[in-house]
Simulated scan of single mutants.
Amino acid sequence: IPAMGEIAQGMVRDVLNAYASRDQQLAVDVIERDEKLDNFYNSIFRNLVSHMMENPATISSAAQLLFVARNLERIGDHATNVAEMVFYAATGRYFTDRGFIEDGEK
């Protein structure tokens, strides 16, 4: 979870810098880091659920850790959304999972 926090913090810092300078490459870097944060969350989720099943006495504390991990993952999602807006403001193109598309394309 601390590693997730560092990634999320870096994403927020970088997306604010990208916004201030309309830096499309920094925005793309933020967008690409979201997958790493998602993978961290999925791994933590699986591990904690397994741990809760093996030791029901840990359910309360493990659930709290799941909430923390989920909120860190959401911070990354919000930073990614802002990065996509920065990319559009800088280039006039929408960023999608497949890269970018010109305004008006589908």
Rank of each mutant, 00 (worst) to 15 (best):
D14Q: 11
L26T: 12
R46N: 10
T58K: 03
V28Q: 04
G10Y: 12
F40T: 08
D29E: 06
D29G: 10
N17F: 14
P56E: 06
V12W: 08
R13M: 09
M52L: 10
E54M: 14
D14L: 09
D38Q: 10
N47W: 10
V28M: 10
L48D: 00
S21F: 07
R33A: 08
V15L: 11
K36T: 15
N42S: 01
H51Q: 08
L48E: 03
L37R: 00
A8H: 05
F40M: 12
D34H: 04
V28E: 10
M11S: 02
I7F: 10
R22F: 05
Q25E: 11
L26E: 04
I44T: 05
S21D: 15
T58L: 03
V30M: 02
M52D: 08
V15S: 00
I7Y: 02
M53A: 11
I31Y: 10
K36D: 15
L26V: 04
M11K: 02
R13A: 13
D38G: 02
N47C: 11
I44E: 04
D34K: 07
N42E: 13
R22K: 11
N17P: 12
R33N: 12
V49F: 08
K36E: 15
A8M: 07
I7L: 15
Q24R: 08
V30I: 10
T58R: 06
M52I: 12
R13Q: 05
V15Y: 11
E35P: 11
M11A: 07
Q24L: 12
D38H: 02
H51A: 07
V12Y: 05
R22N: 13
R46G: 08
Y41K: 09
D14S: 10
R13V: 12
R13W: 11
A20F: 08
D29A: 06
F45D: 06
L37M: 09
I44C: 01
E32H: 11
V12R: 04
L26C: 07
E32Y: 13
V15T: 14
Q9L: 15
V30K: 00
D34R: 07
V49L: 06
A27N: 10
I31W: 01
V28S: 06
E32N: 13
N55V: 12
S21M: 11
